[in-house]
Design a protein around this nucleic acid. Sequence first.
RNA 1: GAGAGUGUAGCUCAGCUGGCAGAGCACAGGGUUGUGGCCCCUGUGGCCGUGGGUUCGAGUCCCAUCACUCUCCCCA
Length: 417
Amino acid sequence: MITLVKGFHDILPDETRKWAFMMSTARESLERFGFREIIPPIMEKTELFQRGIGEVTDIVEKEMYTFEDRGGESLSLRPEATAGVLRAVVEHSLLRKDPLLKLYCIGPMFRRERPSKGRYRQFFQVNAEILGDDSPYTDAEAVAAAYSIMTDIGATGLMMEINSVGCPNCRAEYRKLLQTFFKDRTKDLCSDCRRRLEANPMRILDCKVPECAHMVKDAPLVTDSLDEPCREHFREVREALEILEIPNRLEPRMVRGLDYYTRTAFEIVHEELGRSKAVGGGGRYDNLLKDLGGPDASGIGFAIGLERLSMGIPDDHPRFRRRIDVYVALLGQGAGPMGLTVVNMLRSNGISVETRYSPMSLKAQMKLADKIGARKVIMIGDDELARREVTIRDMRTKDQTTVGIDGIVKLLQGDES
RNA sequence: GAGAGUGUAGCUCAGCUGGCAGAGCACAGGGUUGUGGCCCCUGUGGCCGUGGGUUCGAGUCCCAUCACUCUCCCCA
């Protein structure tokens, strides 16, 4: 047997209604916020991700599906959506037509990590970007959009964690403070963190080793190192979140994985999954567009992981149940031609119909109709055949009526209203 | 990349110190000759992950291997 690629997963017929619901709900929420959909390809030149995400990040260094195509060019499956979206924006000069752009896309991302619960090598993300506005209210709107998607989908147990990582100026300052702080305590740090102290001291804040975590409690906070403009920006973001009544928690030790973030950073965490498993996350990136050869415009975006979001909502919601308008039960050989006529007529009128052509007992067909969630069953047997009629049974009320073949559609459609 | 656990029916899992391969659900048929959900009866369905070893005999013990799951790391 040829099996799935490790870390990939099939979404099976019993789950697709839930997935369709999540995606259409996300679309509706985002359209309500004025976002428009963009559908970039799932593959880009490797160089785009190297420049966009940063060459020294884990994602680019060891998690990308990178290969050389037959022309000798290095290509990569997208590990995240922002780089591709911004590439399209720059390439087609979209910001010239719309100086404020709100875009979203939904689709699979690829990262070659070790799979575990809620972590796949191919995973679906809803991704949204607001480009061309650095107002703090725009940050709040991005957070609100992310929050709205999740509440519209019906996820529970979620918490919005928010922080500001400052601009490159404040960060240089903060970095020095951190290094000074940890330098005296180097011997108590874990080996990873000793390495991080030089390379990227902010990573220490995220360490799960008890000794490090204990020390981090007393470490200086980024929020204390913000310069005046950044401090004011963050204050207004938080004020806006209050006005929007979005439950949030200041998480001054939260740092995000991608280097390009400036100022506002946020994560949506599932309380039950714990801090290490974010359902969504995002932040502001005021230099990324320019770094990708575009205009000097700011941006803020977020991504929501659908596999993880789906863990927060029940599988058995009635709306995820299979539904069909009519099951047509054919009884006996002679019913075939008339059955085909009826089935075809109903479908042409927008009614969803399922039927079986191989002989089955009526009992078995009733069971089947019940299983697939048919609202009505149309029975065609010898009696009906002789009179050019059908018997229609309402599966919920058990009422049965007989109607001539030409009256079926009218009867069913009259029932709808 | 490091650690732990689990592989037995389509699914969830029992299977004791080695001795005929099991249950529930699902599926099919019947109880009701043309009427669903509940109930009852019957049936289909297994290279016991794979390869080797120990043994009269291995689902069970040993070795190897593969796959999956979980934890750490990192993220969505």
